[in-house]
């Protein structure tokens, strides 16, 4: 089975994020980058599928020179090959643009299954996976916590409010990951050495037959980026007894916070 994983490199969740002077982006100089955690579930699930069904796992990403690190890490975990679309035009891309680029690569790449993170934790767009499925005219199943493949069909379980739902579709399919799907493995040290010899194709937009002027052009534009307002200082309710404190709390909730 040929499996494609859509992967994005994002700032590490432990990084200290600062807004850049243009107030529309973040400072990228000193931050560490990692594989988007939801994409990491996708890599793990793909490797597990390969271990059961055979075949190969290809990592596909649109990014910059730096993205090579994230792809290499996925290769060290056990993926077989990588494709990186590296083009200056990608820097300003929005979700739809990224999906169009990834879909263009996939039009010429044979696959049975595509796995993507439900969203990237930097932009929180929730768009790329399903837009790629749309461009390729294949079914899309979102936020999967369990899957099973038999006889060319995939059965996916996903959570809904208060329960779960099982969906079935004929391959090829694109599904996106939800926390709980699996526990991603570490890239083992022997894996890191083996990853060195695995193929990584780096292509420009022109190489995949796209016009960089058009393909990278965003249809949405970020106009401002702000931190959430700082939390106001808390208030400690004083009182002699629990009863007195409770009364003061009710009063505060009614009069000051106006929530009851």
């Amino acid at each position: 089975m040929e499996i494609i994983v859509l992967l994005k490199q994002v700032p590490s969740t432990e990084s200290f994020i600062e807004i850049a002077e243009d107030e529309m982006s973040i400072k990228k100089d000193d931050i560490k980058f990692v594989i988007n955690p939801y994409d990491e579930f996708a890599v793990e699930e793909a490797i597990r599928l390969k271990e059961t069904h055979g075949g190969s796992v290809t990592i596909l990403s649109a990014g910059t020179d730096k993205t090579v690190e994230a792809i290499r890490t996925a290769l060290a975990m056990g993926a077989d090959k990588g494709i990186l679309i590296n083009d200056p035009a990608i820097e300003g891309c929005d979700a739809l643009g990224t999906a169009r680029i990834l879909a263009a690569v996939l039009k010429d790449t044979p696959f049975d299954l595509i796995i993507a993170g439900q969203r990237a934790v930097d932009d929180d767009n929730f768009q790329v996976g399903l837009a790629v499925a749309e461009f390729l005219s294949i079914p899309h199943i979102s936020m999967v916590i369990k899957q099973e493949i038999t006889d060319g069909k995939i059965r996916c379980q996903r959570t809904v409010e208060g329960g779960s739902v099982t969906l079935e579709a004929r391959l090829p399919v694109l599904f996106t990951t939800q926390r709980g799907l699996n526990e991603p493995r570490y890239a083992s040290l022997p894996g890191i050495m083996k990853a060195k010899k695995k193929p990584l194709d780096i292509k420009t937009l022109e190489d995949i037959g796209l016009d960089s002027e058009k393909a990278g052009k965003p249809m949405t534009k970020i106009t401002a980026m702000k931190f959430p307002p700082e939390r106001k200082e808390g208030k400690i309710i004083e009182g002699e007894s629990a009863r007195e404190k409770a009364a003061a709390l009710v009063m505060a909730l009614r009069e000051e916070a106006r929530v009851i």
Binding site: E69, R72, T73, A76, Y186, A187, S188, L189, I192, M193, A195, K196
Partner: peptide, 14 residues
């Protein structure tokens, strides 16, 4: 080297 950087990263994570 890239591999040495990756080893540091993975062992640190572990």
């Amino acid at each position: 080297t890239k591999e040495q950087e990756m080893i540091r990263k993975e062992v640190r994570r572990f």
